[in-house]
Simulated scan of single mutants.
Amino acid sequence: MLSPPVLGFAATSGTGKTSLLTKLIPLLKAQNLRIGVIKHSHHDFEIDQPDKDSFKLRKAGATPVMLVSRYRRAVISELPPAIDISLSEQLAAFPSSGLDLILVEGFRHESYPKIELCRPSLGKPMLYPSDPSIIAIASDQALSTPPNLPQLDLNDPQAITAFIIDTFLKNQRD
Rank of each mutant, 00 (worst) to 15 (best):
S3A: 13
P4T: 01
S13P: 06
G16K: 06
G16P: 01
L21Y: 02
K23E: 12
I25M: 02
P26I: 12
K29A: 08
Q31W: 09
N32H: 15
L33E: 09
L33S: 06
K39G: 08
F45H: 13
I47G: 00
D48Q: 01
Q49I: 12
D51Y: 10
D51P: 03
K56I: 09
A60I: 04
G61P: 03
M66A: 15
L67Y: 03
Y71N: 11
L79Q: 09
L79N: 15
P80Q: 10
P80C: 10
A82N: 14
I85H: 10
S88P: 09
A92F: 05
F94C: 01
P95E: 10
G98R: 08
V104I: 13
F107S: 04
R108P: 06
H109Y: 05
I115V: 10
C118S: 14
R119N: 12
Y128T: 09
P129T: 07
P132Y: 09
A136R: 12
Q141I: 03
L143A: 03
T145H: 14
P147I: 04
P147E: 04
P150G: 04
L154G: 00
L154A: 03
P157I: 02
I160L: 09
T161R: 13
T161P: 08
T167E: 15
F168C: 05
K170T: 12
N171C: 07
N171W: 03
